[in-house]
Design a protein around this nucleic acid. Structure first.
Lengths: 94, 94
DNA sequence: TTATCATTTAGATAGTTGGCTAAATATCTA
DNA sequence: TAGATATTTAGCCAACTATCTAAATGATAA
């Protein structure tokens, strides 16, 4: 918890489709199927992206009946921003 | 100028060696050779990383005689932070 | 239990990445 | 010009990534 490695996070974020997914989830939790309607790639490919985002702790998932709802985990963003700021911010002396 | 695409920047940042290079450059401009002394990979491999960082506008380079000095381009960090904040920050409504 | 719907897992493949060695380029000095 | 130094480019390869289709899993409904 909270120990999401920055490389994993940045790799997850460095794909436009995954950033788009996160953006959608910012507004509203969505099922895999709802998300799939909005992208021009296959459901299995999207499922792979969900896995990457989950491994980076950027999203969470909860099954409700047949559907799985995905939600944004905003915390990890702020951890990332903190890390990047700490690492590259002006006042940092390591 | 200023139109560094966020995917390129994040991809460049998502490698620990490249982040280490940026960290070193935060303190002091360094030549390719000086940087090479600090990493356990070959000079050509490092040169490849310099290219990635340059393409992402994260570093600049200036030849002085035989040596090439690399320097951090802090601007792109703040552009990135802005972009990420704009995209994922709480108040954003896209 | 059979069918159906939602999603993931498995397996294949094309493209990208990051490493290497060897060769090329650029600069300085003798 | 020749030799030495600094760095990059070229070419190769193994590992990883993103995509696909087909098959498997999980859950609901008839």
């Amino acid at each position: 918890m909270g120990i999401t490695d920055i490389t994993t996070t940045l790799k997850a974020l460095s794909d436009p489709i995954r950033r788009d997914i996160l953006n959608l989830l910012k507004k509203k939790n969505l099922t895999a199927g709802e998300i799939a309607l909005l992208f021009p790639i296959s459901k299995p490919s999207l499922s792979h992206h969900f896995t990457v985002l989950k491994n980076a702790n950027l999203i969470g998932s909860e099954r409700k009946g047949q559907k799985i709802y995905y939600s944004l985990n905003a915390t990890v963003f702020y951890e990332l921003l903190n890390d990047v700021l700490e690492t590259f911010g002006e006042k940092n002396e390591n």
